[in-house]
Amino acid sequence: MFHDMDAIVVEKLGKQFGKISAVQDVSFTVHEGELFGFLGPNGAGKTTTINILCTLLRPTSGQARINGFDVMQQRSQVRRSIGLVFQGPTLDEYLTGFENLRFHAYAYSIPAPERDERMRELLQLVELWDRRNDRVRTYSGGMRRRLELARGLLTRPRVLFLDEPTLGLDPQTRRRIWEYILEMRRREGMAVFLTTHYLDEAEHCDRVGIIDHGSIVELDTPDRLKDLIGGDIVSLRVEDEERALMELRGRFGLEPAVFDNTIQFNVPHADQFLPEFIREFSLPLQAVSLRRPTLEDVFLKLTGHAIRDEASADSIPTPARRL
């Protein structure tokens, strides 16, 4: 039932906190070397899933294996084969960056020659080599995150867990963190299990599981998830919405919806469809725009709500091309 090649196998996992069902009947597989993402809003159960997989929490139902090791029966082997960057801060601020890494190296019994080389390699990668002998309390948020990433990679894990690795960082730092992640993945080929509620980060993933209220709603590659939308998204602005809607439904056989005075509908290959549509449409158009669907649209369609509360403002279509 379990393949040797699978980094993570999760079957019907469930976690109950009293009356709260944090995770319900979650099943998925992450292949060796795959970059796999959990995309979901606050409280969806992402961290709870990671805590179960990394042996910090016991599930109330189901089972899971990491690199073939059972997370409940073979915890020591599981712990040896994973690296983690937790959601919240986890550094010892009284120690230097170097000492934090060294503690980790000691805890995982990395042999001395390899340890020194590896610490240097990683500290240079995340650009903290010059600051290695400063206490962590003098580090900025971005530096701490980079140090945690270096620490997570220190033991050359076969599976790396990243729980919202860029939460609260500015766009530039986020991009740098991502460069390190992708670079390390290229060098070492470990599987990465990532949780995020940033859509652009989910785009980096080979496959994305959309999780809401503790359950996986849909799981596929980002492109195929977007295909669920049924083509590109076209937005129109017209004077007379009622008549426009009638014409779109009747003459074009579309299923338009109205958001904030804007009519939206999905069509495959909208770039070819639009020129003809503009010629044929009988009402005067005030604005037309077309864009590729995003995972946000997928999320909205699948769960009926936006991934972030404030995201409803983002979801007003920003015209990609104005005609």
Binding site: C54, T55, L56, S76, P89, E93, A107, Y108
Partner: peptide, 13 residues
Amino acid sequence: EVGFLKVVLVAPL
């Protein structure tokens, strides 16, 4: 409180 305990507890110790 500072989260370090998690790091200790997921280590193979």
